[in-house]
Computed example of a mutant assay.
Amino acid sequence: MALFDNYFAFATTVFMGLLAIVNPISAIPVFLELTSNMDKKGKRNIATKSVLVAFCIILIFSVAGKLIFHVFGITLAALRVTGGILVFVVGYEMVRGDGNKAASSKLGSQPVKADQGISVAITPLAMPFLAGPGTIATAMSYSAAKDLIHLGIVIAVYAVICYGSFLLFLAGERIVKIIGTNVMMVITKMMGLILAVIGVQLIAQGVRELLNF
């Protein structure tokens, strides 16, 4: 019983930690913005791909993250800077508003194909939103802590978070209907500003780590 309690406590800790960092609710405005002109099939297609790609990223880094970093000479600081740039660009475009929606409009105005929107699903939805530098670092630290059972718990917990994110993405339009388009527009711009600030913070943190300040 004590062993079960230990695993349950570990799973709870991992869940709360990863959920706080991933914060899938914050990605809803971004998902809706990028898929604003798509039909339901296209939205589901991108939502599915984004969570699958994010899960694969965390799975790989949880199992072999340290080895990957070592082989390619990658540092977490460099990953923070790259992720920060991507987050800032998305946030900046969200703040600017409709004038810069050409890319997402083009994506949504065409007939849905099997491979449609894969770039959007990978960046920025899968990475850095669902599987950003903070999520990767947290998953790596938890999974490297003890044994294979704990590694399995980390992967399973993140799978649950990915599924929850998928459901939130699909329910995004209903949320908009409840709160209204104007309110959602305000929330989108506020989230864009917050994302831009988070991006700058990630870049600054990564630069400090790179320079060993």
Rank of each mutant, 00 (worst) to 15 (best):
M1G: 15
M1Q: 13
M1W: 10
A2N: 14
A2L: 11
L3E: 15
D5E: 13
A9D: 13
F10V: 01
T12D: 08
V14T: 10
V14S: 07
F15R: 04
M16F: 15
M16W: 14
L18D: 02
I21G: 08
V22C: 05
V22F: 02
I25F: 13
S26I: 14
A27W: 02
I28V: 14
P29F: 01
L32Q: 13
L32P: 10
L32V: 07
T35F: 01
M38W: 06
M38K: 10
M38H: 11
K43A: 05
K43M: 08
R44I: 12
N45S: 14
I46F: 03
A47H: 07
T48V: 11
S50G: 09
V53H: 10
A54H: 04
F55D: 02
F55K: 01
I58L: 10
I58G: 07
L59K: 05
A64H: 10
K66H: 15
K66G: 15
I68W: 03
I68H: 05
I68M: 06
F69G: 06
G73N: 01
I74S: 00
L76S: 11
A78T: 12
L79E: 05
R80E: 07
V81Y: 00
T82M: 12
I85G: 04
V87Y: 08
V90H: 05
G91H: 00
Y92I: 11
Y92G: 05
G97D: 00
D98M: 04
N100D: 12
N100K: 12
K101G: 03
S105N: 14
K106N: 12
G108R: 04
Q110E: 10
K113F: 00
K113Y: 00
A114F: 11
Q116F: 07
I118Y: 02
S119T: 14
V120W: 00
V120M: 02
I122E: 02
I122L: 06
L125M: 02
M127F: 14
A131C: 03
G134Y: 01
I136F: 09
A139E: 04
M140D: 04
S141L: 12
Y142T: 10
A144E: 15
A144L: 09
A144V: 06
D147A: 06
L148N: 11
I149P: 04
V154F: 00
S165N: 09
S165I: 05
L167F: 14
L168A: 11
L168T: 11
L170P: 04
E173K: 12
R174G: 11
I175L: 10
V176S: 09
K177H: 13
I178Y: 13
I178F: 15
N182P: 09
M184I: 02
M185K: 15
M185T: 14
M185D: 15
M185I: 13
V186Q: 12
T188S: 08
M190G: 13
M191I: 12
G192K: 04
L193S: 07
V197M: 12
I198A: 15
G199F: 00
L202H: 09
I203N: 03
I203H: 01
Q205H: 15
Q205N: 15
Q205E: 14
V207W: 00
V207D: 02
R208T: 08
L210W: 05
L210C: 05
